[in-house]
């Protein structure tokens, strides 16, 4: 039998609910309340995490109306995103699909239409789940995050941001205000895959992002990152380096798969065993390379 909703029988309520309209105000509030305030944007993670204990949250900072944090623009050699861009908006952005199809594809795999409509990329980043679908894509694409406080701001590389499951480098007085992704002139091909028990509404058992940039047939830059295979989503720089300066034909896909496998440290959980994840991450890397090879031969630019 369905229990009574405990949210409404707690008898207590919040002290402060700030629905701010601009970033300046948001930063002032964050500076004042530091870790004593809960941030929400799309709220899709927060309301699940705090189900049946919403009444315990005293102070709320609702960022969903800060319009200046919702944008997508190309500036010189960078694509810059506001953290309030929803997965729905990213998935449907023609500009993103053209410039960074890898990220558009990852955003399209998040949750369900209902979750994509509300959930934001900033939320995905700040929740910092090892399984966050857009995170492997951001890592492979060499993204940086602008962390801003009332007094200053700093740029942190995605690979330095994630510290432990659901823990990151944001200080108590900081907000994520911008996501910067470099755009390179070379031809690029990418692959993103999510392994799970069904297509929709699964937390990744594993996800893998691969992007290769070619110059005259040789790999000039590479990005490899995996999710749900370590305490945080991780970028595999050493595997990237193994591919640099080579053509696809010179790569041994199976060996590269093994190199990926060597560098992950997954756990056994309800979504899959450690052994399963290690084997599947290897095979997914092989599939990623094969997929890029196929498209390169076909002369298609991007997935």
């Amino acid at each position: 039998m369905k229990q009574e909703n405990k949210q409404t029988i707690s008898g207590r309520d919040f002290e402060k609910y700030f629905q701010v309209k601009n970033l300046k105000k948001a930063l002032e509030i964050k500076a004042k309340y530091e870790d004593q305030i809960l941030l929400i944007a799309g709220a899709t993670d927060v309301l699940v995490e705090n189900y049946e204990k919403l009444h315990e949250i005293k102070n709320w900072l609702d960022l969903s109306r800060v319009k200046e944090l919702k944008f997508l623009e190309v500036k010189e050699d960078k694509l810059i995103l506001g953290p309030l861009m929803t997965h729905y908006e990213l998935k449907n952005s023609q500009r993103l699909k053209q410039k960074l199809p890898l990220l558009a594809k990852a955003a399209a795999a998040v949750g369900s239409p209902q979750i994509r409509a509300k959930g934001t990329i900033g939320g995905n980043i700040c929740t910092s789940s090892p399984a966050g679908d857009t995170l492997s894509a951001l890592l492979a694409l060499d993204a940086s995050f602008k962390l801003q406080s009332k007094i200053d701001s700093r740029l942190v590389k995605a690979e330095d941001f994630f510290l432990a499951p659901k823990r990151n480098g944001l200080k108590d007085n900081e907000l994520l205000t911008q996501i910067e992704i470099p755009l390179y002139p070379e031809e690029s091909l990418s692959f993103w895959a999510k392994i799970g028990r069904r297509k929709a509404l699964v937390i990744s058992t594993l996800n893998l992002a691969l992007v290769l940039y070619f110059e005259q047939g040789l790999i000039k830059r590479a990005g490899v990152a995996v999710g749900s295979a370590a305490p945080t989503p991780i970028r595999l720089r050493e595997v990237e380096e193994l591919m640099l300066g080579k053509s696809l034909a010179e790569l041994n896909y199976r060996e590269l798969g093994e190199e990926v496998k060597k560098r992950v440290s997954p756990i056994d959980d309800i979504r899959g065993t450690k052994e399963y994840r290690e084997n599947v991450v290897r095979d997914t890397m092989v599939n990623a390379l094969k997929s890029i090879e196929k498209r390169r031969e076909g002369g298609k630019n991007a997935d």
Binding site: I40, A43, T44, V48
Partner: peptide, 8 residues
């Protein structure tokens, strides 16, 4: 379409 259980 949104989940009304996940919005305040």
């Amino acid at each position: 379409a949104v989940n009304s259980c996940m919005i305040l």
